[in-house]
Simulated scan of single mutants.
Amino acid sequence: MRFRKPTVEPLEINLTPMIDCLLFLIVFLLLATSFNHFSRLNIVLPEAEGVAHSEQLESIEVAVQEDGSYLVNGISLADSSEAELTNMLRQEAGNERNMLFVIAADANATHQSVVRVMDIAGKLGFLNLNISTVVPMGQTLAP
């Protein structure tokens, strides 16, 4: 008796289901993703609407002028260095870090000058950081 040799079918990998799944995932991710269009935003600083400032007994106000110089509670600094600003803030605050820390920056001040003040305030441990803004003309604050 003569037996036939079993024929071995060649192995194939069917990629169609995998491609369908990947295309489905790509379409899902494209639909679910939100894109930020920062270049399309037209923002004007420092006007803002908001809640009126609540009075606190103690606060530190750092004014950032257009030329990048600083005033701490109305006292002008000798220079605009980080060390000078840090020393003045330590002198004004003492050991108190829960007081209100207000940054009042000129609308034409550089972003770097404002970020420097925020960075120093964070390093010193101030908790209540506030950026002072101006209410646009013709608008009132909600009570």
Rank of each mutant, 00 (worst) to 15 (best):
K123P: 00
I19L: 13
A121W: 02
E47I: 07
S76R: 12
V62P: 03
V135P: 02
E49N: 08
F126C: 07
S69V: 06
A63Y: 03
C21Y: 07
Q112V: 06
L30N: 13
A104E: 10
N128Y: 08
A107N: 11
I75Y: 04
N14V: 10
A93S: 13
L22R: 09
I13L: 14
F3V: 11
H37F: 15
A104T: 07
G50D: 05
V117Q: 05
L23N: 14
Y70M: 05
L25Y: 12
L45D: 01
L31S: 12
F126K: 05
A105Q: 07
E66K: 15
G68M: 03
L41D: 12
V51T: 14
I103F: 05
L124R: 04
Q91P: 00
T33G: 08
D20V: 15
S81H: 08
P17Y: 03
E96F: 03
E61W: 03
A78R: 06
G68C: 03
R90S: 08
D119C: 00
E49L: 14
L57Y: 06
I13C: 02
H53M: 12
L11Y: 14
R40Q: 15
L31Q: 08
I120W: 01
E9C: 01
M118E: 11
E82Y: 02
G74A: 08
S132P: 01
T33Q: 06
S80Y: 04
A48P: 00
E49V: 10
A48L: 05
P6L: 09
A121Y: 05
A83E: 13
S113Q: 02
I131V: 15
H37S: 11
L124Y: 05
P143R: 14
L45F: 11
S81M: 10
Q91L: 12
F101C: 06
S81P: 01
I60L: 09
S69A: 08
E47V: 10
G94V: 01
A32S: 15
N98K: 12
V134I: 14
E58W: 06
K5A: 09
V8E: 10
P46F: 08
V64S: 04
H53G: 02
K5R: 13
M137C: 01
L25V: 15
T33H: 05
L100A: 08
V134E: 10
F24E: 12
P136E: 03
P10H: 06
A48V: 04
T16D: 10
D119V: 06
A105M: 03
G94E: 00
V27D: 04
S81A: 06
L30G: 15
